[in-house]
């Protein structure tokens, strides 16, 4: 473990908790893409199948359980509990255009052609594009609530910090995982225009509005 990965994990945890808090406090999931949250739940459930077979550390196990539980609760909030506030008219990204190609790629490009490894690879590829329905929804509504932009910033920062972690591990541990690195770079690049808007607008106290 290194400080970059630790801060990255905490940023990820913060993002997940910000989102849960926003939905619970405002009792509304307006502006939130249920499709992205569904994809994140899929990412965690396919990545952490080794939760009980591959013990790394108490921290690792704890975080995996928190991620799985929180992502499922978030999906439950959006599609069940606060369903009335779910903005399905703007959450129209065709997720099958993500899941199918990512599924195919996971079969073709992986480290090991075993079910667990293919599912892990699927999860890594899927995570890199899982935010697209959310970014698409914001581009359609033309704006995002400030709390939602803080959520997105923390979520984008997590994988950006992981890239620093991978550079660190390459130089100090001689360890690297090209699949995770390439997917992580794609994932972070997708946030770039959002990062720009967040820093130039939200941090200036303005509302985040995308040129529709």
């Amino acid at each position: 473990m290194n400080v970059f990965r630790l801060i990255g994990d905490l940023s990820h945890l913060l993002a997940i908790l910000i989102l849960l808090w926003k939905i619970w406090k405002t009792r509304s999931c307006s502006g939130i893409s249920g499709k992205s949250q569904f994809l994140f739940a899929l990412v965690f459930t396919t990545r952490y199948l080794d939760l009980f077979t591959n013990f790394i550390s108490p921290y690792n196990t704890f975080m995996k359980i928190v991620y799985i539980v929180c992502s499922c609760v978030t999906v439950y909030f959006i599609y069940v509990k606060f369903k009335a506030t779910y903005d399905s008219n703007h959450d129209t990204f065709r997720v099958e255009f993500l899941v199918v190609p990512v599924g195919g790629l996971a079969f073709l490009v992986n480290h090991d052609f075993t079910p667990l490894e293919i599912l892990w690879t699927f999860s890594i590829y899927l995570e890199s594009v899982a935010i697209l329905p959310q970014l698409f929804m914001i581009s359609k509504t033309g704006e995002a609530e400030t709390i939602t932009s803080h959520y997105l910033f923390a979520l984008g920062a997590y994988r950006a910090l992981y890239i620093v972690n991978w550079v660190y591990r390459y130089y100090f541990e001689g360890f690297f995982d090209l699949i995770a690195i390439v997917a992580g770079c794609v994932q972070t690049i997708l946030y770039c225009d959002f990062f720009y808007l967040y820093i130039t607008k939200v941090l200036q106290g303005k509302k985040l509005s995308l040129p529709a």
Partner: peptide, 10 residues
């Protein structure tokens, strides 16, 4: 290539 390492990252 990737050194075979247990998946210790989240």
């Amino acid at each position: 290539s990737k050194t075979k390492k247990k998946k210790d990252e989240l």
